Computed example of a mutant assay.
Amino acid sequence: MRHEDRRRISPKNAAFTLVELLVVIAIIGVLIALLLPAVQQAREAARRMSCTNNMKQLGLAIHNYHDTFSRFPPGYLHPGDPNINFNDWNDWANSYGWGAFILPFIEQSALHDSMDFTTPWTAAEAQHELSAFVCPSDPGPPLNKFYYQGNNLQDANQPESERMAKSNYVANVGTLSVNGYWSKSSSSAGVAGYKSDLKFKDFVDGTSHTIYFCERDSVHTRGSGQYEVGGAVWIGVPKAYGAGTSSHVLGRFAGSASESTIYPINSPKGTYGAYLGVNSQHPGGVSVTLGDGSVRFLSEYTEWQTVAGLARRADGAVLGEW
């Protein structure tokens, strides 16, 4: 009799009640909520490490370029004739940027050799998606959805056949405007501009105290709708002209207290700094490649004077810790 009672009671005791099931589900939910931020942080750490590696490779590439040509790559050049009359709109053309010039030094020799640098690049050439120029944290599509190859301006309504593969890295123009001629002799100049041809001796402040590359994501954008613009491209400047924008390949920093509110690191969406300056999807700042090839993380809370000193190649600024 006892044996039969035990057989009748055991199945009932072995089952979960509704309350117990709900408690288990609640516990699992709490554990997931606790673990999810940690998983996300681990993923971002891996993405940031990959981005850092990309920027180190770019730093190595410009040094190898210098070893080969005794100068650093130009920010961008008009195809065929660097002394072209930019005031004549008939001479505006798709111009090659620093990203195209360093292709042989990032294991893209075949692509480099297939391009004719005496003629404007085409959309087909510009659509080669190169992981070396892409930060894994950037959620934007492989083709920059703001720029197109037929004009240096933005137009979100152009078909993808006119788009260019994105880049998340731009060369430092200094605290100068990216919308004008670049002067090597200016104390506000950085490392790249139209026809720039720097050598090691031109880094008066030292290569370890000068930013060479910085980040630009496709999330911090200016404007909205058709006029929204952001990110960068690796191949160069579409329909380049002298006083026109070269934000496609160059980025600038604030040079004064007033500019620090216009071009802060990680400028708010909808501002000029969002597409002319530097920004990233890494929390708290951006990664930068210095002239010596090293990569550092530049906090968005760094004082503007320190950032400006790092952006300028020869201003003699004494830099503190950063």
Rank of each mutant, 00 (worst) to 15 (best):
G206H: 01
Y263V: 01
H3S: 10
Q154C: 10
N168A: 05
Q149F: 15
K199F: 01
A42R: 06
G284Q: 10
S247R: 15
Y147P: 06
R313T: 06
I25G: 12
N157W: 02
G285R: 03
L22S: 13
Y301W: 13
A100N: 08
Y181P: 06
Q158T: 09
C214G: 15
G140D: 12
V318W: 03
K12V: 01
V191N: 01
V204Q: 11
G190A: 07
P73V: 01
G291K: 01
S137M: 09
G174E: 07
T221N: 12
E300Q: 13
H209R: 13
G291I: 05
R48T: 10
R7W: 10
N94C: 03
K184D: 11
W234M: 08
K184W: 11
A126S: 09
R252Q: 15
V191L: 04
R47K: 08
R296F: 14
V219Y: 06
Y263G: 11
N54I: 00
R47G: 03
P74L: 07
Q281C: 12
L31R: 02
N87W: 09
R163H: 09
S246F: 00
C51N: 14
R7P: 01
L153E: 14
V178D: 13
T261S: 13
N266D: 15
D217Q: 11
A38P: 02
F117R: 01
N266K: 11
D205C: 03
W304V: 10
Y263D: 10
A100G: 10
S167I: 09
N83T: 12
V191Y: 06
G75S: 06
A45R: 12
L58A: 05
V178G: 09
L34S: 07
S188V: 01
G242E: 06
Q158G: 00
V30E: 09
E162V: 04
S131E: 13
V30G: 14
K269P: 02
H220Y: 02
D113K: 03
I106C: 06
A311T: 12
M164G: 13
Y76T: 08
P268L: 10
T261R: 04
T119I: 04
D155P: 05
I9D: 13
G255N: 04
T68H: 02
A274P: 11
G140F: 05
V178F: 05
G270K: 13
T210E: 04
A123I: 03
L60T: 09
S224K: 07
R252L: 09
F69D: 07
D81I: 00
V23D: 15
I25P: 00
G29L: 00
A308L: 02
K201C: 04
P136M: 03
I28H: 05
A314G: 04
Q154R: 11
G75C: 02
L290I: 01
A124I: 00
A14Q: 13
P79Y: 06
V170A: 12
I106V: 14
N168M: 08
F117C: 05
T17M: 02
A124V: 01
S187A: 08
A257C: 04
G236A: 09
V204I: 10
P268E: 14
K199T: 11
T207D: 07
T119M: 10
A61Q: 05
A110M: 07
K12M: 05
A45N: 11
G251Q: 11
S267P: 15
Q305L: 00
V229E: 13
F101A: 07
H3K: 11
E303L: 01
Y301H: 15
Y181C: 04
